[in-house]
Design a protein around this nucleic acid. Structure first.
Length: 956
RNA sequence: GCACGGGUAGGGAAGCGGUCAAACCCGCAGGACUCAAGAUCCUGUCGCUUAGUGCGUUCAGCGGUUCGAAUCCGCUCCCGUGCACCA
């Protein structure tokens, strides 16, 4: 019979919802477990990747419930920031992929149009996440506690958090450079291009401007390698461009117009005048290198682009491939500069100056490399870029400054850069400039620039005390995987101050100390486990934003202030306030925060640090679980790229339980997995098979008691279940699922094969097994529990009873013996091509071989040692007469020393005699069991190969 | 640039100092069942060898630590990931 997964999934989900299984209340004295997952940004349909982590969360909480914990498993929505806005923009622009997805989901044009308002988008997806994803996957979330980061109550909560940070002196103001559209304000640059039309992969580049003197004016050259300024032998300008004059403080700069427009946003008192100068007119003139006061000739070069840097380039041919190629080009073709009236002599006199010693190169790395790569023309940009990279990297890592640097001689380039920049800035010959590695265009079509924000607010994550306290807490926490636990302290050290507010029309909480700013989405989602404590009361209407104020939060979360004062200020009933406070004290600290690997360097560190900054030590979080992704063939699956609605279909086709099992079993939680439908299908059939197996057992009418195999079943299953429990206790879901869905049914099948059929025993075993299936495949487990085992309760609310049994090793050994013999028999049958044996003889190893193993192991003590083993053998009177066999046997035992150490002899002869019937029935033939020593001469050799736990076998 | 991770059978993936030729899943091959296909079950799947065995070679490469290393350390070669106003 085919199981109707769809039907049972719905049936049990309805049942759980009806009974409110996810709802959590504090219960005095009962042990608790509080888990959250990093809530999703509200910006589109969820996909198989999101569901992976959420599913782990549900599995863990279900298991904890079974272990008798009172579990709080809430969820919320991260609505602040850009995503919802970006989504609405897509609707407005009628983006076909987005519209189609929504149509496919069943929305009509009017409903789609409503999503042009980001607030509606948030509401729309909130409902979808709950109804179509979380509930459909069987999650027992406390749905009364749902809250989003743009609700007014959350805003109040944020205001409190930031007031706490301010009190702790962790909010600071300083200048900041950030991407910005001159039209629309601040923009985000990210690879998904949520906020921009082009340039998602752009990186911010920090140039240094060196101010070359051109008469009374300044020719500002932008460079990434200010340390090479000592080796400048000429300047480059693109002769086709027109330069502008800029008044900046008391100076006058000459540079490209484009560059000036950009710099305007980064400098104060930066005024572009109407005076224009054709670049051509400067070529052939000389300017002065401000660092060493040498004269430098200005030359023409086609590779100079106005969009990059200032459009003025300093030339260091010894260390820059572009410069060398361009210079070489001119020197070989002096006629090119005839029109500029530069003497050929002067041009040819220009010689590269070497500055940096690098082990892998000679005096002029750029020249060497250009020659070896066969570079000739300025147009070979790709190769030139590559060469530039190579020289830069080599010199940066292994290069040292030479004698031209005077007191800085011998300094490593990697260190020299910062030292020299500082020196130059002090002498007022250098300035900073920011740019992008590629063109970035805003959604409005304007080019994005880097803008100076003079008074940006930061959260001071660099604070020493905060960092060290956070590291201390991290040390105490349980963190999965281990690797991340090791990484985290380093990340906390490295984590720098973070700009925590922005200006612009983004969703989020207004910054309480300056309402023009909006709190940025990473900073507003660090303490949210706290809000779930009261979100229930918010949903129920007992608390609303007007009741909330800093004093309230202080009282609840920090035990500051008095009940009376808080009641007066908030207008809330004292009983209610006390209840919220009790809830907090009951549920806190948070036991586990679960999130994807993308959170490793951003969310988790700030989550921890904000807790440390605000809460008392006893309330700090206790655990972090990081799960990796489900990737498509081309890497990460993203919400925006569709494929999300299909998750419904996946659940329908493969069943939710199979997907849940898939997530657990396909690999550890801490590797990326590639979704494979074929394999998902297999998991469905595994579940089907397990169901049928149980059905078969339950429906069998007979009941037989067979001590030997009954004992084994009890033993082995207890062992397996204990192993499974241990696995999930350590949050090793892969191992857990393997025990439950593969190993245990295998044992059950073996029991049946061995003619075990003790109904009472089986039923109690099935009961235990079904309980253990509940966390991963809850729908199937309920169905088995109810339909096959005829239970009236819900397995989701069952408790796990600890098994306190000592294992009887002998029972296990017996079955290992039988299994060994069976597989040997099959082997022999195949190799000897005997289909229907007439008679089978088992030769059990003689007792002295047991003695031999014991003696050898004892003689060796803790390490295999041939000499000691031989000596031990000879000392044992029982073994002396078998001395002729000693070398071979000792060698064998030694080679298997660690296995043999575990060896415990069992009564093989008696056991096999008892089990004769089993083999006789299986092979339909006569079985004889004998000892190896008591046999006919012609079989002696065969019989003598018998070893303990491995009888010799003869088939006729 | 900064910081991490990984290279294990045809593919995926466990193992993270001795019980490892390596769980488990997929694929492939053979067999059973079946009119047939599918499903299911059994067997095999590094090489040679064999009536159940034995031997050899192995966990990217090279060195080291150890009685003992896929597992720890160092170097080399590949591959991948995260990085702050994106969440």
């Amino acid at each position: 019979m085919q199981l109707n997964f769809d039907k049972i999934t719905q049936k049990w989900q309805n049942e759980w919802t009806k009974k409110g299984l996810g709802n959590a209340e504090s219960i005095k004295g009962k042990k608790k477990f509080y888990l959250i997952f990093a809530y999703p940004g509200v910006s589109g349909f969820l996909h198989v990747g999101h569901m992976r982590g959420y599913t782990y969360a549900d599995i863990i909480t279900r298991f904890k419930r079974m272990q008798g914990y009172n579990v709080l498993f809430p969820a919320g929505f991260h609505a602040s920031g850009l995503p919802a806005i970006a989504y609405s923009v897509k609707i407005k622009k009628k983006d076909p992929a987005t519209i189609n997805q929504l149509k496919e989901y069943g929305l009509n044009d009017k409903q789609i149009q409503e999503l042009e308002d980001p607030k509606n988008t948030v509401e729309f997806f909130k409902r979808i996440y709950v109804e179509d994803f979380w509930k459909k996957f069987g999650f027992l979330i406390d749905y009364r506690r749902l809250i989003s980061t743009i609700q007014p109550e959350y805003n109040k909560f944020m205001e409190w958090q930031f007031s706490k940070l301010k009190e702790a002196n962790l909010l600071v103001q300083k200048p900041h450079f950030a991407p910005c559209c001159p039209n629309c304000g601040p923009v985000a640059i990210d690879t998904a291009e949520t906020d921009i039309a082009q340039g998602g992969t752009a990186e911010t580049i920090n140039y240094t401007i060196i101010k070359f003197k051109l008469g009374k004016r300044i020719l500002p050259a932008a460079t990434l390698r200010p340390e090479t300024v000592y080796g400048v032998i000429n300047m480059w300008l693109n002769p086709e461009t027109e330069l502008v004059v800029v008044k900046y403080n008391n100076e006058e700069w000459i540079l490209c117009k484009e560059a000036a427009e950009k710099l305007k946003f980064q400098k104060h008192n930066f005024e572009i005048t109407s005076e224009k100068i054709p670049a051509k007119s400067l070529i052939g003139k000389k300017c002065i290198n401000p660092v060493n006061n040498q004269e430098v000739l200005i030359l023409p070069a086609g590779f100079v682009e106005c969009g990059i840097g200032t459009g003025v380039v300093m030339s260091v041919p010894s260390h820059a491939p572009y410069d060398w190629i361009a210079l070489n080009d001119l020197q070989q073709n002096p006629q090119k500069i005839e029109e500029y009236k530069i003497s050929k002599d002067k041009l040819l006199k220009l010689k590269p100056v070497s500055l940096i010693k690098t082990p892998d190169f000679g005096e002029h790395p750029a020249i060497e490399l250009c020659k070896s790569l066969g570079l000739k023309s300025q147009n070979e940009t790709e190769k030139l870029e590559e060469a530039t990279q190579i020289v830069y990297r080599k010199e940066f890592h292994s290069g040292k400054l030479n004698s031209l640097y005077g007191k800085n001689e011998g300094v490593k380039v990697s260190d020299a850069k910062d030292i020299l920049i500082k020196e130059f800035e002090q002498k007022n010959v250098a300035e900073e400039m920011y740019g992008f590695s590629e063109k970035v265009v805003c959604r409005c079509g304007t080019e994005v620039i880097v803008k100076l924000i003079p008074n940006q607010w930061f959260i001071k994550y660099s604070d020493n005390e905060l960092t060290s306290k956070s590291k201390e807490q991290a040390k105490k926490m349980s963190i999965w995987p281990d690797q991340y636990k090791k990484e985290l302290p380093g990340i906390l050290d490295w984590f720098n101050d973070r700009a925590c507010v922005r200006q612009g029309s983004w969703l989020g909480t207004k910054f309480p100390f300056d309402r023009q700013w909006v709190i940025e989405p990473i900073s507003d989602s660090t303490l949210y486990p706290l809000i779930y404590i009261l979100s229930k009361y918010i949903t129920e209407g007992k608390i609303n934003s007007e009741n909330l104020c800093n004093e309230f939060f202080d009282y609840i979360f920090l035990s500051e202030g008095t009940l009376d004062a808080v009641a007066k200020k908030t207008g809330l009933d004292k009983k209610l306030i006390r209840q919220v406070k009790n809830d907090f004290e009951y549920w806190y600290p948070l036991d586990l925060n679960l999130g994807g690997k993308e959170h490793k360097t951003v969310h988790f560190p700030v989550f921890l640090m904000n807790h440390v900054a605000v809460l008392k030590t006893k309330d700090l979080p206790k655990g972090i679980f990081v799960n990796w992704w489900v990737v498509g063939e081309n890497g990460k699956i993203s919400k925006s790229k569709g494929g999300a609605v299909s998750l419904h279909n996946l659940a329908k086709v493969f069943s939710v339980d199979a997907l849940r099992l898939y997530y657990c079993h396909i690999g550890s939680a801490h590797i990326d997995i590639q979704f494979d439908e074929k394999i998902a299908q297999k998991y469905k059939s595994i579940l089907q098979k397990d169901y049928l197996l149980i059905e078969k057992v339950v429906k069998s009418k007979k009941s037989v008691k067979r001590k030997i195999i009954d004992d084994w079943l009890v033993e082995t299953l207890n062992q397996k279940m204990q192993k499974a429990i241990n696995s999930i206790d350590g949050l090793n879901l892969k191992k857990f699922s393997q025990e439950i869905y593969y190993s245990i049914p295998e044992d059950l099948n073996w029991y049946l094969k061995r003619d075990g059929l003790n109904k009472k025993l089986l039923l109690s075993f099935l009961e235990q097994w079904t309980k253990l299936m509940m966390p991963i495949t809850p729908h199937l487990a309920e169905e088995i529990w109810h339909t096959l085992l005829k239970k009236k309760t819900l397995v989701s609310t069952e408790q796990w009873k600890k098994i306190n049994k000592k294992t009887k090793q002998e029972v296990i050994q017996t079955e290992i013996l039988i299994k060994t013999i069976l597989s040997d028999l099959e082997n022999i049958k195949q190799l000897a091509k005997i289909n229907k044996p007439k008679k089978i003889t088992f030769f059990v190893a003689p007792a002295w071989k047991n003695e031999a193993i014991k003696t050898v192991v004892a003689a060796c003590k803790d390490q295999p040692d041939f000499k000691k083993a031989m000596a031990g053998w000879m000392k044992n009177p029982k073994l002396k007469k078998h001395a002729d066999k000693s070398p071979k046997m000792v060698k064998k035992i030694i080679s298997d020393f660690w296995k043999m150490k575990q060896f415990k002899p069992i009564a093989e002869f008696e056991i096999l005699n008892k089990e004769k019937k089993f083999f006789e029935k299986l092979y339909n033939t006569q079985i004889e069991v004998t000892t190896a020593s008591k046999t006919k001469k012609e079989l002696q050799t065969k019989a003598s190969s018998a070893m303990p736990m491995k009888p010799a076998i003869y088939i006729e």
